[in-house]
Computed example of a mutant assay.
Amino acid sequence: MQRKALIAANWKMNGSAALVTDMTTALTPLPLDNVDVLVCPPATLLNRFSAERNFALGAQTLSQESRGAFTGELSAELLLEAGATYVIVGHSERRTLNFETDALVAAKLATAVTAGLIPILCIGESLAERQQEKTQQVLARQLDAVYASQPELLAKSVVAYEPIWAIGTGESATPEQAQQTHAFIRQHLAQYDAQAAVGVKLLYGGSVNADNCAALFQQADIDGALVGGASLKPAEFAQICLAVTKGAKD
Rank of each mutant, 00 (worst) to 15 (best):
F55T: 02
Q195D: 13
T135K: 07
L203H: 09
Q218T: 11
G15Q: 05
A220T: 15
A183P: 00
I123Q: 04
Q187S: 15
T28A: 14
T169N: 07
G247L: 07
T174Q: 06
C40K: 01
G90R: 03
D221T: 06
E100M: 10
E236M: 11
A76Y: 06
I120W: 00
M1R: 08
A194P: 00
P163F: 02
Q239R: 11
T21H: 11
A160Y: 08
E133F: 12
A220K: 15
Q239D: 14
C40G: 05
E81N: 14
S66I: 08
D223V: 01
Y86M: 07
Q137L: 14
D193S: 12
R53A: 05
A160V: 10
T44A: 09
L127N: 05
P151D: 10
L32R: 10
G247Q: 09
L30I: 08
A215S: 13
H182W: 00
Y192D: 07
G206Y: 11
H182P: 04
D102A: 14
L189N: 10
N47V: 11
T111L: 04
R48E: 15
F49N: 00
A190C: 06
S149H: 12
A148H: 06
K201M: 11
T245C: 08
Q150K: 15
A103Y: 04
S66L: 08
C122K: 01
T135L: 05
V37P: 01
Q137A: 14
I240M: 14
L80G: 13
T169F: 07
W165I: 10
A166N: 08
V198H: 09
H91R: 02
V20Q: 09
S149P: 01
I185T: 06
N209V: 09
I120T: 02
Y161I: 03
P151H: 09
E236Y: 05
P29S: 01
T169I: 06
G68Y: 01
G224V: 08
D102M: 07
M23H: 06
Q179F: 04
A8T: 11
A197V: 02
A194F: 01
K156F: 06
A17G: 14
G124E: 10
Q180R: 07
A178F: 08
A26K: 05
L117C: 06
A215N: 08
N34Q: 15
A248G: 08
Q187C: 11
Q131G: 03
K201V: 09
Q136R: 14
T28Y: 12
G247K: 09
L127C: 03
I240R: 02
K156A: 14
T245A: 13
A17H: 14
A190Q: 09
D221F: 03
A194N: 07
L62S: 00
V198R: 13
P151T: 09
Q131Y: 02
A140V: 03
G206M: 07
G170T: 04
